[in-house]
Amino acid sequence: MAKLRMTGRGLWITTLVAPPLAFVALFIVYPIIAAFAYAFFDWQGLLRGEFVGFANFHQVLFVEPYASWTRNAFTHNIIVFFALMVLQNGLGFLLAYGLWRGLPGARFHRIAVFMPVVLSTIIVGYLWKLFYHPLFGPVNQVLRGIGLDQLAQPWLGQSSTALWALIIANAWHLVGFPTLVFLAGMQRIPTEILDAARMETESEWVKITQIVWPLVAPSATIVFVLLFVGAFNWFELPYIMAGLDGSPFGSTDVLGLYFYRTAFGNVSAGTQDFGLGSALAVLIFIFIAAVASVITVRLRAREIQV
C-alpha cells in the first residue's frame, strides 16, 4: 500500500516536472552546449565538416581581417557599456533619488520614465532613426530652431557621432528600468536609519554617498550585471539604426552584429560560416559569463544586510 502510494506520488511529480524540464533542456541547454561543439568544426553552409580543433578561434582572434573586425566590435561594446553605465544607470540613480522624495506628481513621473521601457527596441530604433534624419528629423530641427544651425549634422551618417547617437537612443529607451529598480531599493531602507542620518548631517551629498548608495547596493549589483550582459548582447538597436554592417564604415559595429553577419552572412560579407560564428559566440559567451561572475561576486561583497 505504502509503496503503491509512493509510486503514484512519484508519477504525479514526474508529470508536473518533466514537460517544463524537457523544454528547457531541448531549447536552452542543448543549444548552448551544441554551440560550444559547433565551434570546433569546419562548416560548409549547413553541413558539418571535419574537426578542426581551435582553428576557428585562432582565425577570429588572430587572422586578418577577422582579428581587426573582432577588436573593432569589442572596443565599441566596451564604449557602449561605460557610456550607458553613466547615462542609463547613473541617471537612473539620480532620478530614483528624486522620485523617492515623493514630491507632488512623483507617481506621474514614475509612469512616464518607464513608458519607453515597454516599447519594442524595433520601434525605438526606427523612431530615433527618423529623429536623427538630417533634414526631417526633430533633433536637427530643434537645433536650427534655437539658432544652433552649425550643430545640425547627419548624426547617424558620420563615424564621429553614429555610435553616440545609438547610445543616446538606448539610454532614452531603458533609463526607466534602473530608475525603478533603484527606487525600490531606496524604499526598502528602514526609516530609523534615515532619521538617524538626518540627526547627523544636513548635507544631501553625505546622505547620498554614505547612507543611500551603500544601502541600495543589491539594486546596483543587479542593474550593473544586467547592463553588462545587455551591452555585450547589443544587437537590435544597431541592427535597425545602423544596419548589419555597423555603418558608417564599421563605426557602430558591435559583437552582436559581427557575430550575426559571420554566422548567417549578408550582402557584403558573402557566405555564412557557422564555424567562425560559433567560435565568436563561444568567446562572447565565456567573456560575459566570466566578467558577470566577477562583477557579481565583487559587488555582492559590499552589500550590507540591514
Binding site: 548552448i32 554551440a35 548582447n233
Partner: peptide
C-alpha cells in the same frame, strides 16, 4: 542568465 541569442546557430 544565459544569453540564448548566442546559441542561435544550434
Amino acid at each position: 542568465t544565459l544569453p540564448l541569442k548566442l546559441a542561435i546557430i544550434p
